[in-house]
Design a protein around this nucleic acid. Structure first.
Lengths: 222, 222
DNA sequence: CCTATCATCGAACACTTGTTCGAAGTGTCT
DNA sequence: AGACACTTCGAACAAGTGTTCGATGATAGG
């Protein structure tokens, strides 16, 4: 799904998606008119409909494209890594990194999840559930391994997602700590909270050396 | 601001606010028409405008009324409590309790924060900032007391709000743990994460005896 | 019972919305 | 150059939007 041929058509489509995402992120989906998007993309109103057949499909394309990439990147990143704690750390790192580098799209994904039709909602929710289950199972493993009981796994899972997805409400790359720092903070905050005192033993929480952050995981950029 | 005289007018206004909040929470503010609200409240379209002078003021009234109560309740609850950790625990408990008992209003407050005009946005944001600052200062104190450095206070603050405010996306009172459990879990998760291993010492994390949950802090209900 | 204030209503207005359609422009291959 | 598919556009439509206004019903005090 990511980084495909890139025909003339594809390039322009991506440009439209990225521009629209910025407008949606700024004004919200419902109060953005097709005329707003026409203005932002410098295309005629009717010209837009060559690339999608309804405003709602446009929203879907943004969400699906964006979320598919997060999952795909995550899958690739976790490949071959066995230790559940390390897997979780990589997942958090990937999630936050993608979020910060594609704030508009991720805001639209997080904020306008319910603004699409039932059918398309289901389609995205299937992927979303897979992603959530991945985290939930990871936490289950970790809890079992470390006998970290007493914490509801569902609460822990969505607390983690809350921490990560809420950032579009406050995070400002210009005045806040950078992605690496953000990632380190949230990982430490959550993991040592989830594991209790055990989490700090054996230096397991140091976010080992080279991060993958230099790798550009964005499909939008370029 | 809460529990005032309750004239005929006030009672009906509250009813309209509560009903509208439910519709907004369900369909979203922008895709809810005044005719939807007219239907839900069983009032005529024009009759609604006797209670507010625009759709956007209706949204504001919901948000302001709701958030003012959270703050007011919180203020009362923390009165006389000095230990910052205990203060934080009470604040979390109050926040989550109010959230769960007024899910519709809180969802509207969290989700439609940007759907109001700049002037009104400022008005609410002033209160919101006070509330955020309260938490941020609390965390600062706690960090200083416990030498829990290495965690960015701003990240920690908004991570906590992320955990708490995200619940409208997943929490289902019928299948999830109850408010007390939710509160205990999130408190433990965050606090022992924030304090590191120190947080678990001395039983400081037991959510001491009788909670305030039986107290009805809602202004909407009755 | 009368009257003044409160509360509600139907009907209409001015405007914006998403979308369509047929035509015109653009580029590419033979 | 001509033919053909790809891409863009202006103009219009039908439906839905938030809001207003004058009039009517309800309620309570004298």
């Amino acid at each position: 799904m990511p980084s495909e041929p890139q025909s003339r058509y594809d390039q322009k489509l991506v440009h439209v998606l990225k521009t629209s995402a910025a407008v949606f992120a700024d004004k919200g989906y419902h109060s953005t008119s097709m005329r707003d998007i026409s203005r932002a993309t410098k295309m005629s109103l009717s010209g837009l409909y060559y690339y999608f057949k309804s405003k709602e499909e446009l929203l879907f394309l943004i969400q699906d494209y964006c979320f598919s990439t997060v999952i795909e990147d995550c899958r690739r990143l976790l490949e071959g890594v066995d230790d559940p704690v390390r897997r979780l750390k990589l997942l958090i790192e990937n999630h936050l990194n993608y979020f910060v580098n594609n704030m508009n799209e991720m805001k639209v994904l997080s904020h306008e999840a319910n603004s699409i039709s039932r059918d398309r909602f289901r389609k995205i929710n299937t992927k979303k559930r897979q992603y959530v289950d991945l985290v939930m199972n990871l936490l289950g493993e970790i809890a079992r391994e470390n006998r970290a009981d007493g914490v509801d796994i569902r609460v822990a899972t969505f607390s983690l997602f809350g921490m990560m997805n809420w950032i579009y409400n406050w995070y400002d790359p210009r005045k806040d700590v950078d992605v690496a720092g953000l990632s380190k903070n949230i990982t430490r905050l959550f993991l040592s909270g989830f594991l209790g005192e055990r989490g700090l033993k054996a230096g397991r929480l140091e976010t080992g050396r080279e991060s993958h952050l230099d790798r550009d995981v964005s499909i939008w950029q370029q």
